[in-house]
Computed example of a mutant assay.
Amino acid sequence: MKTNKVVLAAIGGLAAGAALGILFAPQSGKKTRKKIAEKSKALKEHAKEDFDKLIEKIDHKYKTISDDAHRLLQESKSKAENGMTNKI
């Protein structure tokens, strides 16, 4: 959950900084539009990179939890089987 907030805050900060920088720059409309396009492209690339990193972390957590659950299930089955054979 913390990672999501950090990623969203970073994206928001980048967008706000880019927008303010462009709005206060005294340049022609053509140059401003070009800068907006460049900043938008850079922001998109950064957002994609951050999103990919977030997906990797989620995938890693999922695999870890899945492996732990599988291990616990196997241990429980083994203990149950041992308990059954000890009663007989």
Rank of each mutant, 00 (worst) to 15 (best):
K34A: 13
T64C: 06
D52F: 08
K35S: 14
K79G: 06
K34T: 02
Y62Q: 00
K57G: 00
M84P: 04
A25S: 13
Q27T: 15
Q27C: 14
I55A: 13
A16L: 14
I58T: 04
T64I: 12
G13Q: 05
A16T: 03
F24K: 01
A19S: 05
I36T: 11
H60V: 12
E45D: 07
L43T: 00
I58V: 07
L20W: 06
A16Y: 12
A10E: 04
E49G: 00
E49P: 08
N82G: 03
L20T: 07
L20K: 00
A80G: 09
K53C: 01
I11C: 01
E56Y: 06
A18V: 00
T85R: 05
P26G: 04
K77Q: 14
T32F: 02
L8E: 12
M1S: 06
D59L: 09
K2Y: 09
L73R: 15
K79N: 13
F24Y: 06
E81T: 13
M1A: 08
A80V: 13
I88A: 10
R33Q: 09
K2C: 05
K53Q: 10
A42V: 02
E81L: 13
D59R: 11
A25I: 06
K39N: 01
H60C: 00
S40F: 03
I11G: 04
A37V: 06
R33F: 13
T64R: 00
I65N: 01
H70S: 14
K35P: 02
F51V: 05
Y62M: 12
V6A: 07
E45Q: 05
M84N: 04
K61E: 11
M84C: 01
I58R: 07
A37Y: 09
I11A: 02
K53F: 05
M1Y: 08
T32N: 10
A80Y: 08
E45V: 05
A25N: 12
H46P: 02
D50K: 15
K48E: 10
K63C: 06
E75P: 02
K77P: 02
I65T: 09
E56T: 07
H70E: 15
T3W: 04
H70W: 12
K30C: 07
K31T: 14
G21P: 01
Q27I: 15
H46L: 11
A10M: 10
K53I: 09
K57W: 05
E49F: 07
A10V: 09
N82I: 10
N86H: 07
R71P: 05
K30Y: 11
N4I: 09
A25Y: 06
D67M: 05
L23T: 06
K31I: 14
K39G: 00
D50Y: 15
K39V: 03
K61L: 12
A10C: 11
K39L: 01
I22R: 02
I11E: 03
M84S: 07
K2S: 12
K30V: 13
I22T: 08
L8M: 12
